[in-house]
């Protein structure tokens, strides 16, 4: 018998919270991407937990697609970071303020 689903759901909620706190407070674009990965993993954990409790493979299939989208997102995001770094010699998001009104 496995542990109750609520334990895993609470763990996922806390992981999501840690990730969003990092996203809101850190200023290096690279660390912010890592925090987005943390939040995506929290959601994946929730999907797998509900997949187990409801006995539906759809949850695991969703995690599969989330992983693909995460890989695509990181590829494009890091490409943007590299091209910004070429121009600004910094990955701090505070210095990208030309568009402010």
């Amino acid at each position: 018998m496995n542990v109750p689903a609520a334990w895993y759901l609470i763990l996922a909620a806390v992981l999501f919270g840690v990730g969003s706190f990092g996203l809101l407070t850190r200023r290096s674009a690279l660390i912010m991407f890592m925090c987005v990965e943390l939040m995506l993993n929290a959601v994946n954990l929730t999907f797998v937990t509900f997949s187990r409790t409801l006995s539906d493979i759809g949850g695991q299939a969703s995690v599969f697609f989330v992983m693909v989208v995460a890989a695509a997102e990181v590829t494009v995001g890091l490409g943007i970071v590299v091209s910004i770094f070429r121009r600004r010699s910094s990955t701090s998001v505070d210095e990208l303020s030309e568009l402010k009104g």
Binding site: F65, V68, V69, A72, E73, T75, V76, G79
Partner: peptide, 16 residues
Amino acid sequence: TAVLLVIAVVGAVLLA
């Protein structure tokens, strides 16, 4: 997702 991955690869190469 296959289309998405191709777009991501092309985009990353263009950006970098």
